[in-house]
């Protein structure tokens, strides 16, 4: 069973009283999913009769089906289909490797899809499907609606399953070349970094940034320059006069 992502409740900020706790305006259920918090906001806006305009029409089932292709971590929205790692490898070489490299290592500045394991606390984190992404559903959802870059939605559902299977294989998340990914098992795939995310906690972890009166005099010891942008020298176009500018 894939774990269910936590539901989250937001407290709408009152326009009168503001406190750091309300700034980000999000109270969260833990990822374990607290039923008590999943019930929605207790603050109801003042009830006033809702006006109906009756402008527009109902979409047909067919119209919704054509566009409604998103997928959730629990598998909701997965289309019927299947594909194996081996099938995905061939498709990847034909459709993806020119940008992402044969092993997902990335060509030039195009995204790296595999590797980076254990790098998240390092100086140079490499955030890939295997090292970073929390859910396999995201990979399917994204690849199916936005890839290949430049010709999105050009492959068949089974081909997308195969491609996702291959990318999971590149990341050692599945290890058998004959593994067949399908709408029946995608939501059961456990991603290594699923537990690597926390809800926005700025209101508590950065509480010190809320102050009554900011300091105005002798706030810190005299400072010295410790870094220069000109030393890095990557600003577009330095002309003869050495001023930063751009390309026409």
């Amino acid at each position: 069973m894939a774990s269910r992502p936590g539901t989250c409740r937001q407290t709408v900020r009152s326009r009168m009283s503001r406190s750091p706790k309300l700034i980000i305006a999000v109270a969260l259920a833990s990822l374990a999913g607290s039923a008590a918090l999943a019930g929605g906001s207790s603050e109801k806006p003042e009830a006033k009769p809702v006006q109906r305009f009756n402008i527009g029409r109902a979409p047909t089932t067919e119209e919704i089906r054509g566009w409604d292709i998103d997928v959730r971590p629990d598998g909701q929205g997965l289309p019927v289909g299947k594909g194996t790692v081996a099938q995905g490898e061939k498709l990847f070489m034909d459709n993806c490797a020119s940008c992402h490299g044969e092993f997902g290592e990335g060509a030039g500045r195009w995204p790296v899809l595999a590797g980076g394991k254990g790098s998240l606390t390092s100086d140079n984190p490499v955030k890939t499907v295997g090292s970073y992404w929390p859910y396999a559903s995201t990979l399917f959802d994204y690849v199916r609606h936005a890839m290949p870059f430049g010709s999105p939605q050009s492959l068949k559902v089974d081909e997308y399953y195969a491609l996702v299977a291959y990318v999971l294989y590149l990341n050692d998340i599945v290890t058998d070349q004959n593994f067949e990914l399908s709408n029946g098992n995608l939501a059961t795939i456990k991603m290594p970094n699923e537990a690597g995310f926390i809800m926005d906690d700025r209101a508590t972890s950065e509480k010190a940034f809320w102050q009554k009166e900011p300091c105005m005099k002798n706030c810190i010891a005299p400072v010295k320059i410790t870094g220069h942008a000109t030393a890095v020298d990557v600003t577009p176009e330095e002309g003869k006069d050495g001023k930063p500018r751009g390309v026409e």
């Binding site: 992502p5 959730r72 629990d74 955030k127 929390p134 859910y135 559903s137 959802d141 994204y142």
Partner: peptide, 13 residues
């Protein structure tokens, strides 16, 4: 409209 977040690429990766 749904009952939980989707965790799309633009809010995970």
């Amino acid at each position: 409209v749904g009952d939980q977040p989707w965790h799309t690429r633009e809010e995970t990766s």
